[in-house]
C-alpha cells in the first residue's frame, strides 16, 4: 500500500531538505520511493509543497485532493491551505509559527489567527508543535525543519530500522551537524 506525505511551507523554510532525508530513510527501509518538488517562481516567498510517496511499487510522484496520509505544515496558515489534500483519518502535524504574506502585510488579505482551534476541532489527529521557536531557542531557527522531522519520525513510528540521526548528519552542512542532531532529538521528544 502506497503512503503519501505532503510537506507545505513558505519558500526558503527548508521543506526540500527534510523531503530528501525522508526519502533516503524510506529507501533504506526497502520501499520504492518517489518525491516531487515544485521549484521556480514559488521560491520567492510563495507557498511551496513537496510530495513524498512510498510503498512496494510507487507510480505517480504526485497526488491530488484527499490523498495525503500525513500533512506536515511549516506554517500555521499553510496548514489550512493544505487541508483539502488530507484524507479523512489522516494526520496533520503543524508548526504554530506565523509568516505574513505581502497581501496580509498590506491589508489585502486577513491572517487566520484562530486557525489552530478550528483545525484541532475538525481533524482528530492534529499535532501542533512549536518547531520554529524550539529551533530558535536551540540557536538556529533554520533547524525548524529537523525539529519537525523528529516529531514526524516519532509520530509515524519510523525509527525501527532506520538510523535517522545519521541521515540527518549526512544531509546537513558539516558545521551544523551538532545543532541539527539536537533539533532532531528535541523534535522527537516533543
Amino acid at each position: 500500500m502506497t503512503k503519501s506525505i505532503l510537506l507545505i511551507g513558505v519558500g526558503g523554510q527548508g521543506t526540500i531538505l527534510i523531503s530528501k532525508i525522508l526519502s533516503a530513510g524510506f529507501a533504506e527501509m526497502g520501499y520504492d520511493v518517489k518525491m516531487s518538488e515544485i521549484h521556480g517562481m514559488s521560491q520567492r516567498g510563495g507557498s511551496v509543497t513537496t510530495m513524498i510517496r512510498y510503498g512496494d511499487d510507487v507510480y505517480s510522484p504526485n497526488f491530488g485532493e484527499a490523498e495525503a496520509d500525513v500533512v506536515i505544515s511549516f506554517e500555521k496558515s499553510e496548514a489550512v491551505r493544505a487541508l483539502p489534500m488530507l484524507k479523512a483519518g489522516g494526520t496533520l502535524i503543524t508548526d504554530d509559527y506565523e509568516i505574513y504574506s505581502v497581501p496580509v502585510l498590506t491589508g489585502a488579505s486577513t491572517y487566520p489567527f484562530d486557525a489552530l482551534d478550528q483545525l484541532r476541532k475538525m481533524v482528530p489527529n492534529t499535532i501542533v508543535i512549536e518547531a520554529f521557536r524550539t529551533a530558535e531557542k536551540l540557536g538556529n531557527s533554520r533547524c525548524q525543519n529537523i525539529v519537525l522531522l523528529g516529531k514526524l519520525v516519532k509520530t509515524m513510528r519510523l525509527d525501527k530500522t532506520v538510523d535517522w540521526r545519521s541521515l540527518v548528519a549526512s544531509n546537513v552542512p558539516e558545521r551544523t551537524v551538532d545543532i541539527n542532531l539536537r533539533a532532531y532529538e528535541t523534535g522527537y521528544n516533543m
Binding site: 516567498g45 507557498s47 484527499a66 489550512v80 484524507k87 479523512a88 504574506s101 497581501p103 496580509v104 486557525a115
Partner: peptide, 15 residues
Amino acid sequence: ETYHVEANAPARPPT
C-alpha cells in the same frame, strides 16, 4: 472524504 474549516489561507504569491 477530507476535512473542512471555516478559516481561509491568505493568498501567498511569490514576492
